[in-house]
Design a protein around this nucleic acid. Structure first.
Lengths: 133, 133
DNA sequence: TCTTGACTTGGAGTTAACTCCAAGTTGTAG
DNA sequence: CTACAACTTGGAGTTAACTCCAAGTCAAGA
């Protein structure tokens, strides 16, 4: 699979893919004899992981560390487990914050929609932002 | 409430609070006659909102836009509602990605824990990353 | 009143994560 | 064999969101 195909498949730029490889977010990608990237199943799995975890806010540094440990072999299994657990906690924490924001948004949207429907503001925005967020 | 107290209450730096005010993420804060920030209930509500929405990944630009619309008065209620709905969609989208990452993490952690308990790798990490992510 | 520490401003600097660029190489279609 | 698009590299540039700094002002205690 060419870099272009991978880009299209995952809606990501070639620059980002090359950057991920360069800094070690993914291991070195398989090449053709001419030196052109030819993504194999394994390479693609790493790309998929990288995108998935980046999408969840996991820092590039952490992914680099994971790949480094992975390449050091079985002796790093404990370290890798810990790293993954740490990432899990961070993601759970972040998700909690998303839920709180959603609640707040829903409350505000609800208020605004009533105002729109009735054409009347039964409350001042000031009051709303002051008392209920 | 002084800037320091607000910092401590929300675990945020004074620089960030001043930055938020400067760029318009929150409206101008009440001052003492001497020009020193003296956060009132309303000011604090804005700070709380800003932190909450930033924590959910809402871009600073969007918060600035909301405050701008808010200050223009009731004629911008439709625009504000749309903005909030847009933010809501973005947060829902992001949260979905967090859930996917969590699933992947849980799967990997489960595998690693079995390896740790039994002291045996019944699978190669390569295989794991290749086939199951 | 003096000191001392927290506050003020505008502007410059930093960080993470890309994103772009120039100059050169590869590979496919005609 | 020749174009020509797509690929390669190292390195520089950009963006969002802070974060820090210098020079000066304010306010509470001795």
């Amino acid at each position: 699979m060419t870099i272009k195909e991978v880009c299209e498949k995952y809606d990501i730029t070639a620059d980002t893919l090359r950057y991920y490889e360069r800094v070690g977010v993914i291991p070195e990608v398989t090449r053709t004899p001419g030196g052109i990237r030819d993504y194999q199943e394994t390479d693609i799995a790493w790309v998929e992981n990288a995108i998935c975890f980046r999408d969840a806010g996991m820092p590039v540094e952490m992914l680099i560390e994971y790949v480094k440990l992975y390449q050091e072999g079985d002796s790093t299994i404990d370290a890798r487990t810990n790293l993954l657990k740490e990432a899990r906690e961070a993601i759970l924490e972040a998700r909690k914050k998303y839920d709180i924001a959603l609640e707040k948004l829903d409350y505000k949207i609800g208020r605004y929609e009533i105002a729109q429907k009735t054409g009347v503001l039964t409350w001042t925005c000031d009051e709303d932002d002051k008392k209920k967020g």
